[in-house]
Each structure stands twice: as structure tokens, then as C-alpha cells.
Design a protein around this nucleic acid. Sequence first.
DNA 1: TTTTGAGTTGTTCGA
DNA 2: GTCGAACAACTCAAA
Length: 495
Amino acid sequence: MRPSSALNRALVWFRRDLRDFDHAALSHALRDAREVFCVFVFDREILDTLPSRADRRVEFIRESLVELDHGLAKRGGALIVRHGFARDEIPGVAAELLVDAVYANRDYEPQALARDTAVGRALAGQGVDFRTFKDQVIFERDEILTRQGTPFGVFTPYKRTWLSALTPGHLAPHAIDDRPRALAKPPAPLARGVPALDALGFKPTKLGDLGVVAGMSGGAALFASFKRRIDRYRGLRDYPARKGPSYLSVHLRFGTVSIRQLAAYAHQRSLLPNAEGAATWLSELVWREFYAQILWHHPRVTEHAFLSQYDELAFPNDRRLFAAWCEGRTGYPIVDAAMRQINTTGYMHNRLRMITASFLVKDLLVDWRWGERYFADALIDYDLASNNGGWQWAASTGCDAQPYFRIFNPVTQSERFDPDGKFIRRYLPELASLDDREIHAPWQVPIAIQQAKGVVVGRDYPSPIVDHAVQRAAALALFRAVRSPAPPDARAARR
DNA sequence: TTTTGAGTTGTTCGA
DNA sequence: GTCGAACAACTCAAA
């Protein structure tokens, strides 16, 4: 345990940890300092580069901050909210409040690390400590390594080691002093409440209409509901029409739930008999940490294939095919329904993320980075490490990747995971009159039946933009070209 | 150092 | 309709 440093004043900087319970930085600050202030920065470094002025994530964050502010007020505090560049705002607020130290939970993304280095340097120049803590994962950085001391590149041994390293201490919450006056009230000019969306230059996105409830209360409600379904998770999670997943990803992204709480529950339950659901879900939480750890050790994956020989893949990158994929008019119903789901809700079911990713890379022969970028812009739960890991997995370019000859057949996947076409009908009502067998491949329905049902392919719904069998062969050739014969120098460069 | 077992999520072909 | 093999040999992690 850290010896008490007996600070006079500390500032807790909230980033992707928008909660007032089980919070490492807040817990430590309240123990270390006599007076504790809290701040959040709408960082223009991020906001200014968002592709749309109607961004669900900004709205989610803003709503979460309102609840966080209320929570802090119960302890006598208030959230200071700034809109500017973190590298200026944090040192600025620290100077105004004359704090001795700034406390924050660690963020492992390359941009966040660069930001924190800059902020830390500026603070040091003012004689202010910058203290960071592990909070958003159970195991961070190099806490899980092979016996040789190297990072894992394969999931299963990583998970085995992760599970055997787990102790009750890793799952214990960071207690927060919840006495009424535990937090300090900032001077009035600093605490002006949470700005409205339009003050930030953004438009509302009607999150509520989508059923997304931000903040700690939204996260807690989802978790409570998922606890009642977790035993069925394994059986239901692959069916996009079913309520299988936890839907907690966005709350994990912004820290409106605590990873320790989720993992502790899943782990405890996974030890009971017949607890495959909890064990499978815990595995998903471990995947999240696996990819976070890959990004930490290999930041180059944001730009490059993890397996460097696949940087040589000569994707044709047809812009018209890419546009059709983005807009959900490929003529493959499961793909189009999935793309309409992400476009209209900012969420896409995990099975569909795999199907659409495989389709973009292996059927449309478009660079996985294009798809990764599109998901990054569209997903409310977008997380760099997981999104990159998932795309590289599907593209067969990543660590622990799917072998390149495993190419999803969009029709087979549709028949298997949306057998009654329920999900397809939800997002493609124009196909609703087709029966359960027909809906997965409308172009194969006899024209007379198409006409009778008012679903004529080419008129009411697009013809398939590519032929899967043809594209599959082309993808195999594309990948084979960078594998064999491997030029001797390329092989050497790999090492 | 060498050997060995294993590796999230599949598809297609032919018997 | 069902089943096993091939896809293509590869790399990781542990013993």
C-alpha cells in the first residue's frame, strides 16, 4: 500500500471512468488529500476530429456527466467541466485550484498516452504531481506474461494465465469515502455545471429513442437485467434477433460500470455447476484485456497488420463496393441488415461484426482498415483495441487470427444465426414478405414468386453486388500471393 | 535447444 | 442429409 502522502489538495481528472463508485483515482485521492476536486474535459483534440456533429458518444458522455455531477454533489463536491484541449485545461484548472497533484485512471491508447505525457510534463513544470492508476482493466500492461517474460500473442494461453493469476484482491472494489463533505466544492466560476450539447457544438442524437440509457444508472440497469440472462448467454449470444448479449460494451467504454464488479460476478458464477454462460461471458471480458494488452505492446497495429507479411496484401479497394457496404445495399440481406443496424443505432451485434468484416475484406476485397475506420466512426461502444483486434482477426492479419482460408459464407451464416429471418426483417422490412427459407438469398427466389410477393430483386432490393464463390476464390488468391513463395528478404524482415 | 500439442467464432467437397 | 477431410502448413507457449 502507498504510504499516505498527506496532500493538501488533489484534482481527480475523469476520462473514460464516468462513475463515482469503485474508482481507483477517486479512491486514492480521497485517501491522500485533504481537499479533492473533480474535473472532466471535453477534449477538442478528439471532438474536433469527429466526422459528424451528431455523435451518440458525445451525447452519452454528456448525459453520464450529469449523473456523475449529481453523485459528486451528494458528497459535497461538483464536477468542473471544461471544453478545450486537455493539455491546456488540466494544467490550467490545477493552477487555479492550487492543487498538489492530479489523479487519473490510466488509458492505454497511443493518443491518450501522448496526451497524458504532455499533461504530465506541463503539470511537472508547475510543481504538480500527476498520478495515474490501473482502473479500466483487471490486468494491465505487462502483468500477464509468458514464462519467458514476453507478451502473449495467442488468446487461450493468455486466458489460462489471466484466470490463474486472478485473486480476490484483483476484484475488490476501490472504496470511496462517501461521507457528505468528503469532496470539496470548487469556487463558483469553475463549477458551472455540465454544458448543453449545442454549447459543445453538437446536435442531439435521440439516444433515449434507441433505448440507450447513459450513466451509472443505465449501466446498473443493464447489468441487473443481464444477471437474469447470463446463464443463457452461451446459447443465445450468436443470434442477433435474440436478447443474448449484455449490451454493456458502451458502459465499459466510458466506465459507467466497474470492470471489477462485472468480472467478480462472472467469475463467481462461473465456478458454479452448469455455469457455461458466465464462463463464456467472462471469456469475453478477458478478450477485452487481451486486445488492450496487444495494443499496449504493439501500438503499430493501429496502422499495420500484426502479421507484417499481410501489409503486402494488394486489396483492389473498389470505392463503389465499399460505399455499398457502408450503406447496406450489397444485396446480401444479413450484411445489409447489419449495416443498417450500425447506421441507425450505433450498435452492431458481435456475430454481425464478424460477418460484415469478413464480407468487406474477403468478398469485397477492401482493406480491413477502411472497415475499421467506418466502425470507429459509427459505433457508440467503439474501443480502439477491441475494434482493431476484431478487424485484424476477421481479416486474418492479426495475432491469433482466423486462418485466411476461413471465409464466412454470408448466406450460410444468415441461415445458421438468423434462421427465421427475424433480424433481417427488423432492418429490411422490404424483404418481410419472403419466407424464412427465401429471405437469406432473395436472388435465388424464382422470379414469379418475387413478383407475386412484391419483392423483385433489382427493383425492390439490390442484386448481389458480387458473387460469393467468385470473390472467395479471389480472396484466397490475394492471400496466397503474399504467402508463397515468400521472398527471402520479406521473410527475414518478419523477424 | 528441441519437441510437442494446440489454436474463438468456417466452408466446401466428395463419399 | 450427414460426415470427415482438406484448406496449408504456421506459430505460439510450455515442457
